[in-house]
Protein backbone atom coordinates (compact mmCIF):
# COMPACT_ATOMS: atom_id res chain seq x y z
CA UNK A 1 0.00 0.00 0.00
CA UNK A 2 2.76 2.40 0.93
CA UNK A 3 4.69 2.11 -2.31
CA UNK A 4 1.84 3.47 -4.39
CA UNK A 5 1.21 6.09 -1.72
CA UNK A 6 4.79 7.30 -1.89
CA UNK A 7 5.05 7.05 -5.64
CA UNK A 8 1.75 8.91 -5.75
CA UNK A 9 3.21 11.60 -3.51
CA UNK A 10 6.11 12.16 -5.87
CA UNK A 11 3.90 12.05 -8.91
CA UNK A 12 1.49 14.45 -7.26
CA UNK A 13 4.29 16.87 -6.49
CA UNK A 14 5.41 16.83 -10.11
CA UNK A 15 1.97 17.10 -11.69
CA UNK A 16 0.27 19.19 -9.03
CA UNK A 17 2.55 22.02 -10.02
CA UNK A 18 1.93 22.61 -13.68
CA UNK A 19 5.04 23.83 -15.57
CA UNK A 20 2.99 26.80 -16.68
CA UNK A 21 2.37 27.90 -13.09
CA UNK A 22 4.23 31.21 -12.93
CA UNK A 23 6.25 30.55 -9.77
CA UNK A 24 6.79 26.80 -10.07
CA UNK A 25 10.27 26.07 -8.70
CA UNK A 26 10.18 22.64 -10.31
CA UNK A 27 9.82 24.08 -13.81
CA UNK A 28 13.17 25.82 -13.93
CA UNK A 29 14.10 27.98 -16.90
CA UNK A 30 17.43 29.15 -15.54
CA UNK A 31 20.59 27.24 -14.83
CA UNK A 32 20.61 27.98 -11.09
CA UNK A 33 17.02 26.91 -10.58
CA UNK A 34 17.70 23.86 -12.76
CA UNK A 35 20.62 22.75 -10.59
CA UNK A 36 18.60 23.35 -7.44
CA UNK A 37 15.68 21.45 -8.88
CA UNK A 38 17.90 18.49 -9.81
CA UNK A 39 19.40 18.39 -6.32
CA UNK A 40 15.92 18.58 -4.82
CA UNK A 41 14.76 15.58 -6.84
CA UNK A 42 17.90 13.62 -5.90
CA UNK A 43 17.30 14.23 -2.20
CA UNK A 44 13.57 13.68 -2.63
CA UNK A 45 14.23 10.29 -4.20
CA UNK A 46 16.30 9.27 -1.18
CA UNK A 47 13.72 10.72 1.20
CA UNK A 48 10.92 8.88 -0.55
CA UNK A 49 12.86 5.64 -0.34
CA UNK A 50 13.40 6.10 3.38
CA UNK A 51 9.79 7.15 3.81
CA UNK A 52 8.50 3.99 2.13
CA UNK A 53 10.88 1.79 4.08
CA UNK A 54 10.16 3.20 7.51
CA UNK A 55 6.42 3.70 7.13
CA UNK A 56 6.14 0.19 5.69
CA UNK A 57 8.09 -1.19 8.62
CA UNK A 58 5.76 0.69 10.97
CA UNK A 59 2.60 -0.57 9.29
CA UNK A 60 3.95 -4.11 9.06
CA UNK A 61 4.82 -4.06 12.77
CA UNK A 62 1.32 -2.88 13.68
CA UNK A 63 -0.28 -5.53 11.50
CA UNK A 64 2.03 -8.36 12.53
CA UNK A 65 1.94 -7.85 16.28
CA UNK A 66 -1.62 -6.73 16.74
CA UNK A 67 -2.97 -8.36 19.91
CA UNK A 68 -1.17 -11.64 19.15
CA UNK A 69 -0.15 -14.58 21.21
CA UNK A 70 -1.98 -16.54 23.83
CA UNK A 71 -2.09 -15.84 27.50
CA UNK A 72 1.60 -15.17 28.07
CA UNK A 73 3.33 -11.82 27.97
CA UNK A 74 5.62 -11.06 25.01
CA UNK A 75 9.34 -11.60 25.34
CA UNK A 76 10.72 -8.67 27.34
CA UNK A 77 13.47 -7.56 24.94
CA UNK A 78 15.46 -4.60 26.18
CA UNK A 79 17.39 -3.89 23.02
CA UNK A 80 19.85 -5.24 20.51
CA UNK A 81 23.19 -3.47 20.29
CA UNK A 82 24.09 -4.67 16.80
CA UNK A 83 20.75 -3.65 15.37
CA UNK A 84 20.97 -0.26 17.03
CA UNK A 85 24.46 0.38 15.71
CA UNK A 86 23.24 -0.65 12.26
CA UNK A 87 20.34 1.77 12.21
CA UNK A 88 22.56 4.55 13.47
CA UNK A 89 25.15 4.00 10.75
CA UNK A 90 22.67 3.49 7.91
CA UNK A 91 21.24 7.03 8.02
CA UNK A 92 24.77 8.42 8.39
CA UNK A 93 25.74 6.71 5.14
CA UNK A 94 22.66 7.96 3.33
CA UNK A 95 23.32 11.50 4.58
CA UNK A 96 26.96 11.35 3.52
CA UNK A 97 25.85 10.27 0.06
CA UNK A 98 23.56 13.26 -0.16
CA UNK A 99 26.07 15.63 1.42
CA UNK A 100 28.53 15.36 -1.48
CA UNK A 101 26.38 16.87 -4.24
CA UNK A 102 24.94 19.33 -1.72
CA UNK A 103 28.22 20.87 -0.65
CA UNK A 104 29.53 20.81 -4.19
CA UNK A 105 26.52 22.76 -5.53
CA UNK A 106 26.66 25.12 -2.57
CA UNK A 107 30.18 26.19 -3.56
CA UNK A 108 29.36 26.22 -7.25
CA UNK A 109 26.60 28.75 -6.64
CA UNK A 110 28.74 30.87 -4.31
CA UNK A 111 30.77 32.54 -7.07
CA UNK A 112 29.36 33.61 -10.45
CA UNK A 113 30.87 32.35 -13.71
CA UNK A 114 31.69 35.00 -16.34
CA UNK A 115 29.33 37.90 -15.60
CA UNK A 116 27.60 39.70 -18.45
CA UNK A 117 25.52 42.30 -16.64
CA UNK A 118 25.50 43.79 -13.16
CA UNK A 119 22.16 44.82 -11.69
CA UNK A 120 21.65 46.64 -8.42
CA UNK A 121 18.47 45.52 -6.65
CA UNK A 122 17.00 47.73 -3.95
CA UNK A 123 14.03 46.63 -1.86
CA UNK A 124 11.58 49.29 -0.74
CA UNK A 125 8.36 48.92 1.25
CA UNK A 126 6.65 47.59 -1.03
CA UNK A 127 8.29 47.77 -4.45
CA UNK A 128 11.56 46.93 -6.18
CA UNK A 129 14.09 49.27 -7.72
CA UNK A 130 16.47 47.96 -10.41
CA UNK A 131 19.53 49.84 -11.51
CA UNK A 132 21.78 48.85 -14.41
CA UNK A 133 25.00 50.77 -13.68
CA UNK A 134 26.56 49.66 -16.97
CA UNK A 135 23.70 51.16 -18.96
CA UNK A 136 22.72 54.09 -16.77
CA UNK A 137 19.18 52.78 -16.45
CA UNK A 138 17.02 52.84 -13.33
CA UNK A 139 13.63 51.21 -13.41
CA UNK A 140 11.13 49.65 -11.04
CA UNK A 141 9.20 46.42 -10.61
CA UNK A 142 10.20 45.05 -13.98
CA UNK A 143 13.51 43.42 -14.68
CA UNK A 144 14.79 42.84 -18.21
CA UNK A 145 17.57 40.33 -18.75
CA UNK A 146 19.49 39.04 -21.74
CA UNK A 147 18.95 35.34 -22.37
CA UNK A 148 21.67 32.87 -21.50
CA UNK A 149 23.93 35.42 -19.83
CA UNK A 150 25.05 35.46 -16.24
CA UNK A 151 23.58 38.36 -14.30
CA UNK A 152 25.17 39.37 -11.03
CA UNK A 153 22.61 40.98 -8.72
CA UNK A 154 23.77 43.27 -5.92
CA UNK A 155 20.92 43.15 -3.47
CA UNK A 156 20.14 45.61 -0.70
CA UNK A 157 17.28 47.43 0.96
CA UNK A 158 16.58 50.96 2.07
CA UNK A 159 14.17 50.14 4.90
CA UNK A 160 13.49 46.66 6.30
CA UNK A 161 14.65 43.20 5.26
CA UNK A 162 13.15 41.90 2.03
CA UNK A 163 14.04 38.85 0.01
CA UNK A 164 14.77 38.81 -3.71
CA UNK A 165 13.37 35.76 -5.47
CA UNK A 166 12.66 34.76 -9.06
CA UNK A 167 11.36 31.21 -8.58
CA UNK A 168 11.91 29.91 -12.10
CA UNK A 169 15.41 31.36 -12.34
CA UNK A 170 16.75 30.34 -8.95
CA UNK A 171 16.80 30.49 -5.18
CA UNK A 172 16.84 33.65 -3.31
CA UNK A 173 18.84 36.19 -1.35
CA UNK A 174 17.68 38.49 1.43
CA UNK A 175 17.83 42.24 0.84
CA UNK A 176 19.27 43.64 4.04
CA UNK A 177 19.51 47.35 4.84
CA UNK A 178 23.11 48.42 5.28
CA UNK A 179 24.52 45.47 3.33
CA UNK A 180 24.97 44.81 -0.36
CA UNK A 181 25.11 41.11 -1.18
CA UNK A 182 25.46 39.28 -4.45
CA UNK A 183 23.48 36.57 -6.16
CA UNK A 184 23.95 35.32 -9.70
CA UNK A 185 21.28 33.93 -11.97
CA UNK A 186 20.91 33.10 -15.64
CA UNK A 187 17.67 33.06 -17.58
CA UNK A 188 17.89 30.46 -20.32
CA UNK A 189 14.51 30.74 -21.99
CA UNK A 190 12.94 33.96 -23.23
CA UNK A 191 9.68 34.79 -21.53
CA UNK A 192 8.04 36.71 -18.73
CA UNK A 193 8.46 35.38 -15.21
CA UNK A 194 6.80 36.18 -11.92
CA UNK A 195 8.79 37.09 -8.86
CA UNK A 196 8.06 38.39 -5.39
CA UNK A 197 9.42 39.33 -2.00
CA UNK A 198 9.56 36.38 0.41
CA UNK A 199 10.51 37.96 3.71
CA UNK A 200 7.78 39.48 5.86
CA UNK A 201 8.33 43.20 5.36
CA UNK A 202 5.17 44.81 6.65
CA UNK A 203 1.57 45.18 5.73
CA UNK A 204 1.82 44.83 1.95
CA UNK A 205 4.45 42.10 1.90
CA UNK A 206 2.03 40.01 -0.17
CA UNK A 207 2.03 42.57 -2.97
CA UNK A 208 5.71 43.32 -3.30
CA UNK A 209 6.14 41.61 -6.64
CA UNK A 210 7.87 42.16 -9.91
CA UNK A 211 8.05 40.74 -13.40
CA UNK A 212 11.17 39.45 -15.10
CA UNK A 213 11.42 39.56 -18.88
CA UNK A 214 14.15 37.45 -20.42
CA UNK A 215 14.95 38.60 -23.97
CA UNK A 216 17.22 37.42 -26.71
CA UNK A 217 20.33 39.61 -26.86
CA UNK A 218 18.89 41.68 -29.75
CA UNK A 219 15.66 42.46 -28.03
CA UNK A 220 17.46 43.21 -24.79
CA UNK A 221 19.61 45.77 -26.56
CA UNK A 222 16.51 47.31 -28.08
CA UNK A 223 15.00 47.54 -24.59
CA UNK A 224 18.17 49.21 -23.29
CA UNK A 225 18.07 51.70 -26.13
CA UNK A 226 14.42 52.50 -25.46
CA UNK A 227 15.06 52.96 -21.78
CA UNK A 228 17.92 55.34 -22.41
CA UNK A 229 15.84 57.57 -24.66
CA UNK A 230 14.61 60.53 -22.60
CA UNK A 231 10.89 61.21 -22.49
CA UNK A 232 9.55 63.21 -25.40
CA UNK A 233 7.77 66.44 -24.48
CA UNK A 234 4.11 65.99 -25.41
CA UNK A 235 2.61 68.20 -28.10
CA UNK A 236 0.93 71.31 -26.76
CA UNK A 237 -2.81 71.12 -26.29
CA UNK A 238 -2.94 67.33 -25.83
CA UNK A 239 -4.14 65.76 -22.55
CA UNK A 240 -0.60 64.45 -22.14
CA UNK A 241 0.74 68.01 -22.13
CA UNK A 242 -1.75 68.97 -19.44
CA UNK A 243 -0.73 65.85 -17.56
CA UNK A 244 2.94 66.85 -17.68
CA UNK A 245 2.06 70.14 -15.99
CA UNK A 246 0.12 68.33 -13.28
CA UNK A 247 3.02 65.92 -12.90
CA UNK A 248 5.67 68.62 -12.52
CA UNK A 249 3.67 70.41 -9.88
CA UNK A 250 2.60 67.33 -7.87
CA UNK A 251 4.80 64.30 -8.46
CA UNK A 252 8.41 65.27 -9.10
CA UNK A 253 9.43 65.40 -5.44
CA UNK A 254 9.12 61.64 -5.29
CA UNK A 255 9.38 60.36 -8.87
CA UNK A 256 12.09 60.59 -11.48
CA UNK A 257 11.44 60.67 -15.22
CA UNK A 258 14.40 61.03 -17.53
CA UNK A 259 13.75 63.99 -19.76
CA UNK A 260 11.30 65.78 -17.48
CA UNK A 261 13.05 68.75 -15.89
CA UNK A 262 12.92 68.71 -12.11
CA UNK A 263 11.57 65.16 -11.92
CA UNK A 264 14.39 63.71 -9.85
CA UNK A 265 12.67 62.44 -6.69
CA UNK A 266 13.88 59.15 -5.30
CA UNK A 267 11.28 58.24 -2.69
CA UNK A 268 8.97 56.56 -5.18
CA UNK A 269 9.63 54.36 -8.19
CA UNK A 270 11.43 55.82 -11.20
CA UNK A 271 8.71 56.32 -13.81
CA UNK A 272 10.82 56.65 -16.93
CA UNK A 273 9.03 54.84 -19.76
CA UNK A 274 6.35 53.86 -17.30
CA UNK A 275 3.83 53.12 -20.06
CA UNK A 276 5.94 50.21 -21.29
CA UNK A 277 5.62 48.32 -18.02
CA UNK A 278 3.28 45.38 -17.72
CA UNK A 279 2.08 45.92 -14.18
CA UNK A 280 1.12 48.57 -11.70
CA UNK A 281 1.57 48.68 -7.93
CA UNK A 282 4.59 46.35 -7.89
CA UNK A 283 3.24 43.45 -9.91
CA UNK A 284 -0.18 43.78 -8.41
CA UNK A 285 -2.49 44.61 -11.34
CA UNK A 286 -2.20 44.99 -15.11
CA UNK A 287 -0.98 48.38 -16.21
CA UNK A 288 -4.06 49.79 -17.93
CA UNK A 289 -5.21 53.37 -18.20
CA UNK A 290 -8.33 53.00 -16.00
CA UNK A 291 -6.30 51.13 -13.38
CA UNK A 292 -3.67 53.87 -13.44
CA UNK A 293 -6.30 56.55 -12.93
CA UNK A 294 -7.70 54.61 -10.00
CA UNK A 295 -4.21 54.21 -8.57
CA UNK A 296 -3.40 57.93 -8.74
CA UNK A 297 -6.77 58.86 -7.26
CA UNK A 298 -6.38 56.53 -4.28
CA UNK A 299 -3.63 53.93 -4.07
CA UNK A 300 -5.27 52.24 -1.10
CA UNK A 301 -8.28 51.34 -3.23
CA UNK A 302 -5.96 48.90 -5.00
CA UNK A 303 -3.30 48.20 -2.38
CA UNK A 304 -5.02 48.51 0.99
CA UNK A 305 -3.20 49.58 4.10
CA UNK A 306 -0.19 51.28 2.58
CA UNK A 307 -1.44 54.76 3.10
CA UNK A 308 -3.37 54.77 6.33
CA UNK A 309 -2.68 57.63 8.65
CA UNK A 310 -3.99 58.25 12.11
CA UNK A 311 -5.92 61.35 13.11
CA UNK A 312 -2.70 63.26 13.72
CA UNK A 313 -1.55 62.50 10.21
CA UNK A 314 1.14 60.10 11.41
CA UNK A 315 1.56 56.78 9.62
CA UNK A 316 0.14 53.90 11.62
CA UNK A 317 1.76 50.51 12.03
CA UNK A 318 0.57 49.60 8.59
CA UNK A 319 1.70 52.73 6.79
CA UNK A 320 4.58 53.07 4.39
CA UNK A 321 7.17 55.62 5.46
CA UNK A 322 6.62 57.66 2.33
CA UNK A 323 3.05 56.92 1.34
CA UNK A 324 1.70 58.16 -1.95
CA UNK A 325 -0.89 60.86 -1.32
CA UNK A 326 -4.55 60.23 -2.04
CA UNK A 327 -4.71 62.57 -5.02
CA UNK A 328 -8.47 62.50 -5.33
CA UNK A 329 -8.39 64.79 -2.29
CA UNK A 330 -6.30 67.45 -4.05
CA UNK A 331 -6.70 66.94 -7.80
CA UNK A 332 -9.76 67.12 -10.01
CA UNK A 333 -10.93 64.13 -11.97
CA UNK A 334 -9.70 65.71 -15.20
CA UNK A 335 -6.29 66.40 -13.73
CA UNK A 336 -5.98 62.77 -12.67
CA UNK A 337 -7.05 61.59 -16.12
CA UNK A 338 -4.51 63.84 -17.79
CA UNK A 339 -1.58 62.82 -15.61
CA UNK A 340 -2.50 59.18 -16.17
CA UNK A 341 -2.57 59.81 -19.91
CA UNK A 342 0.86 61.44 -19.70
CA UNK A 343 2.38 58.54 -17.76
CA UNK A 344 0.69 55.94 -19.90
CA UNK A 345 2.12 57.64 -22.98
CA UNK A 346 5.69 57.13 -21.76
CA UNK A 347 6.11 53.95 -23.75
Amino acid sequence: MLVPVAAGTLLLLSVACSPSDPQNTLAATGIVAKKQQDLFWTVMAWATGVFILVEALLVFTLWRFKGRGGAGEPHQTHGNTRLEIAWTIAPVLVLLTVAVPTVSLLWELAEPPKVSTEVKVVGHQWWWEFEYPGYGITTANELHLPQGEVINFHVTSVDVIHSFWIPKLGGKLDAIPGKVQSLWLRGDEPGTYYAQCVELCGVQHANMKFRVVVHTRDKFEQWVKDQRTPARTPDAGTPEAAGLLVFTSNCVACHTIDGVPGAVGKAGPNLSRFGSRQTLGAGMVDNTLPMLEKWIADTTSIKPGINSTDSAGQPTQSGALTPMPRFKDTLSGDQIKSVAAFLYGLK
Binding site: Q36, V43, A47, L95, T102, L106, L109, G171, K172, V198
Partner: peptide, 19 residues
Amino acid sequence: GLSGVTHAISPSDYQQQDT
Protein backbone atom coordinates in the same frame (compact mmCIF):
# COMPACT_ATOMS: atom_id res chain seq x y z
CA GLY B 1 11.86 14.69 9.78
CA LEU B 2 12.44 13.82 6.15
CA SER B 3 11.23 17.17 4.86
CA GLY B 4 13.58 18.67 7.45
CA VAL B 5 16.48 16.91 5.74
CA THR B 6 15.39 18.39 2.41
CA HIS B 7 15.76 21.82 4.03
CA ALA B 8 19.20 21.00 5.32
CA ILE B 9 20.27 20.73 1.67
CA SER B 10 20.98 24.44 1.57
CA PRO B 11 21.27 24.99 -2.20
CA SER B 12 17.85 23.46 -2.63
CA ASP B 13 16.60 25.30 0.46
CA TYR B 14 17.39 28.59 -1.31
CA GLN B 15 14.25 27.79 -3.29
CA GLN B 16 12.16 26.56 -0.35
CA GLN B 17 13.09 29.15 2.28
CA ASP B 18 10.10 31.29 3.27
CA THR B 19 7.66 29.29 1.16
